[in-house]
Write a protein that binds this DNA or RNA. Structure first.
Length: 280
DNA sequence: CTGTTATGTGCAG
DNA sequence: TGCACCTAACAGA
């Protein structure tokens, strides 16, 4: 679940449920116990996200930094009649003092109490986030246009663009007919501007719906008379995890390859290599 | 029930 | 490059 849209939804939820509220903070599992004790009884000011990093502001220069990693979850229950005993490995539990809401963090890659300077350092090393209104796509273009690395690698580099994960990567490249292994510096600036604008739209849709839905109206199951996708992330996609299945546009089997330890998915006809594109 | 896989990152070697 | 992190969904027995 956790690509940028998930974290932005989470920040909104934390702000709505715990903002301006006094909270009890604990670490039933123990790994965050010392920091939790320092925060217990404080008032939450709000939460913000850069890319996949979530920061919960406890005031006086104290931020809880959360990164869900591959399989972390942060479940917020609101409202509740009663706060149950923790189940499983709960790293962080935050409970509103009125007892009407609580949140449990499990399996996260990062959960740490940071100073403002430490928070700022993380923000400074993240690239522009399409979900933030102040994001500057030219910062990403400066990196992409100079790099020999594959565009598929650059899109996943959080210092280049913040918040893109494997699903958005695969789908964005499909929608723009770009082969994932094409070197960044072979792209034209107009292509990048179109990709960025699309990413802004797609990720905002993701924040709204909580799913990653990337197929255009003409390729939905209803429009094409095909069965809908049954999958854990819920949305309709073109190529992500559709290895060997027919492309919704051209019927060719979707291809896959591991790059940098992550699976790439693309259509060899809809996303031709740079070489064949130049030749044809 | 068991085994496999994963929307991510950082660190050891 | 490989693994730790240690959840959750899914397939199969």
């Amino acid at each position: 679940m956790p690509e940028g849209h998930t974290l932005h939804r989470l920040a909104r939820q934390v702000s709505d449920v715990f903002g301006d509220q006094q909270v009890r903070v604990g670490s039933p599992q123990g790994r965050f116990a010392d920091s939790a004790a320092q925060l217990d009884g404080a008032v939450v000011l709000g939460a913000e996200t850069w890319g996949k990093h979530l920061f919960i502001d406890f005031g006086v220069g104290r931020f809880v930094h959360v990164h869900l990693g591959l399989y972390g979850t942060f479940d917020i229950h609101d409202p509740v009649d009663e706060v149950p005993l923790p189940v499983g490995q709960v790293r962080l539990r935050i409970v509103r003092v009125d007892g009407k809401a609580y949140g449990d963090l499990r399996g996260a890659t990062a959960c740490a109490l940071l100073t403002t300077a430490e928070r700022d350092a993380i923000v400074a090393r993240t690239g522009p986030d399409p979900l933030r209104p102040d994001a500057d796509p030219d910062r990403a273009w400066a990196r992409i246009s100079r790099s020999a690395a594959p565009i598929g690698t650059l899109l996943m580099d959080q210092a280049v663009v913040a918040g893109v994960g494997n699903v958005y990567r695969a789908e964005l490249l499909f929608r723009h007919r770009i082969h994932p292994l094409r070197p960044g510096r072979t792209l034209r600036v107009g292509q990048w501007r179109a990709m960025w604008a699309d990413l802004v739209d797609l990720m905002h849709d993701g924040v709204r719906s909580g799913t990653i839905d990337t197929v255009r109206p003409e390729h939905t199951p209803e429009a094409m008379g095909r069965p809908p996708r049954k999958d854990d992330h819920g949305g309709e996609v073109y190529v992500y995890r559709r290895t060997s299945q027919p492309c919704h546009v051209c019927d060719r089997p979707v291809r896959t390859q591991v790059l940098g330890g992550r699976n790439l998915f693309w259509c060899s006809r809809c996303q031709p290599t740079f070489r064949s594109r130049a030749a044809g």
